[in-house]
Design a protein around this nucleic acid. Structure first.
Lengths: 338, 338
DNA sequence: TGAGCATGCACAATCGGTTGTGCACGATGT
DNA sequence: ACATCGTGCACAACCGATTGTGCATGCTCA
């Protein structure tokens, strides 16, 4: 370093002075368009080494302003605090990075207001695309994006105003239910009731999973009583309370349960432990994946959504924007622990 | 909306034309400095309602460029995939938002190269402050920030070139160890060995936790054999392998274990299950917090780091930058499940 | 009636890159 | 010796906001 520490950050004007050339030349060299502009190799390498030694770094705001492209891609996410969403964030980031894009992720707590606020911020920062994950109201956000001429994509939960990438919830639930029923059959408890618990009625994914659950039972020649379907919301406390209510009429816990998320599973396991039931007797299927939980319970089967594939599909949509706004891409999840 | 959908995004120039006034007036009205500039209330509200109805949103790049303040605050994080780091990201974001700052979080996989690369990107986007969480090499990044005149703060792992906010690892470990030893004593197994497993020797936090572990045993009049300290790295597989090696010389698992992270716990629980041991007999203390894991095991005590307090301290440092670069702030964690 | 002051706004420079265009200079061809 | 062309670079106009400054108008008061 020669002339550092004195004032502010280096600009192409400073570099131009140091290299005794013009700012436009410096710019062309630094962003790689110098061959097209017929800058001599000699001057180019002089500028490059100068930029290197002086620790120059381009001002992205200025670049974005002039290019009218921010180089930023946004994602809104309900929460980080489970393996599914956190791996979505992680893969989104690394995939963005590998394409020279800068990913910004904002966490909106399943709150439609925060979702809108976050989307507004992202649009203000001129994101080139907004991926809307598990949004409670994806269409409103898709609308906002459309008005700003920004591409948007729904992930995890489908919407009607932008293409969506989701797991095949019905088929995943069907396979998980079959796995549960097979285990029951192995233990000669084929006809024991199975409790479906967790999630929300209004929620697309929950409805699909219930459909898959019923379909699997149907395929095994089993009827499904409505009292065994409890979409009591996701929260641990709600699931715990719902299970306690359910069990008030019976003496023993169900032999098997289809639990709609790890957060619901948390409440259920806690409730059963508190009431002194022996957990290992119960067969669990959980539509979510958490390796630590899986390690603890020998008969806990889990659905692992294929996050890598889903993120890949998202970026395919980014690369070749689909005209069809109602496009729905379903990715097959995997059943773990069978 | 009157004149939308035709061309690009609205600017203050468009609004000025629509309101029959000048761009500078529009700007002043929209950023709240209009009273100081003696714009009439009438014109101000005309412009405001126009901006509203036309769906104007300021171009943050242009604003940042002119103001020489991006309004962005950055954080680098090893991973999202445990409760500790994900809640750090979440609280950081919401605290930033409440201060009118836009948070960007980048995930660097505990890889020094990725850490540097992410820091470089953040500096290019002119973050106003960079919070460096659990960085393998915090001082290099602090140096980069210093050269760009950007404040930096270390979180979770301390560094020497920027102020640091960390948990009081030693005291947390001491208390957790006491809790383990008390449980053992209750069960008349006071003198049974306790295995410390997981983490890395080189890691500041691991060293402190080992010190707290030894100190607690010391306070109870117990010696600590070095063979019972196994900093085998954090990864689940490493912990599982280390435990298997450890147990090759013995017939039964240790009565109690101090496990240095949930990821290590995963490997240990898996290993014990695979070998057919009954988990509930073992007393676990884990320096990490995961409510789902806690629900599964009745004698699993966990250390919950006080993330809210830590983030608050970080923002206090941002508000009143400390001159002392070696400032170390320690926050007391909490023992759960005692 | 004219100085003095408050009111209400517009002008223009600026932040740091990007990019269309123009121009000087030397080499080549006739 | 003059037209032609390729080489190598500089100029200047943006991108969209912010902000110091200036100026016209109308009012008050001596």
């Amino acid at each position: 370093m020669v002339s550092d520490s004195s004032s502010k950050r280096l600009t192409i004007y400073d570099l131009a002075r140091l290299a005794e050339t013009s700012p436009s030349t410096v710019s062309a060299v630094l962003n790689g368009t110098w061959q097209r502009r017929r800058i001599s190799k000699k001057l180019a390498s002089k500028i490059l080494s100068l930029a290197q030694s002086e620790g120059y770094s381009a001002n992205m705001q200025a670049r974005a302003l002039r290019r009218e492209r921010s180089g930023i891609i946004g994602m809104i996410l309900p929460l980080y605090d489970n393996r599914y969403f956190s791996s979505i964030a992680q893969h989104f980031e690394s995939e963005a990075r590998s394409r020279g894009l800068f990913a910004i992720v904002s966490c909106t707590n399943r709150d439609p207001k925060q979702e809108c606020e976050a989307a507004r911020m992202m649009l203000a920062y001129r994101v080139e695309c907004l991926v809307c994950t598990g949004a409670t109201d994806p269409d409103t956000i898709a609308q906002m994006c459309a008005e700003s001429d920004v591409q948007s994509i729904n992930l995890d939960l489908p919407g009607s105003k932008a293409p969506s990438v989701i797991s095949n919830n019905r088929e995943g639930a069907r396979q998980l239910t079959h796995a549960i029923l097979n285990r029951l059959a192995e233990e000669k408890r084929r006809d024991d009731p199975v409790l479906f618990i967790g999630g929300r009625h209004e929620d697309h994914n929950t409805r699909e999973r219930i459909a898959g659950f019923k379909q699997a039972r149907d395929e095994m020649g089993l009827a499904t009583a409505e009292e065994n379907i409890l979409p009591c919301d996701y929260a641990a406390d709600k699931a715990q309370a719902a299970l306690e209510t359910y069990m008030r009429k019976r003496s023993t816990p169900p032999s098997a349960m289809f639990v709609n998320s790890t957060i619901s599973l948390e409440g259920i396991v806690r409730g059963l432990q508190l009431n002194g039931y022996y957990l290992d007797d119960i067969i669990f299927g959980c539509f979510d994946w958490d390796p630590l939980a899986a390690a603890f319970h020998p008969r806990l089967m889990m659905v692992r959504q294929n996050v890598i594939e889903m993120i890949n599909r998202v970026f395919e949509l980014i690369d070749t924007p689909s005209l069809e706004s109602s496009l729905l891409i379903e990715v097959q999840p995997e059943i773990m622990g069978v």
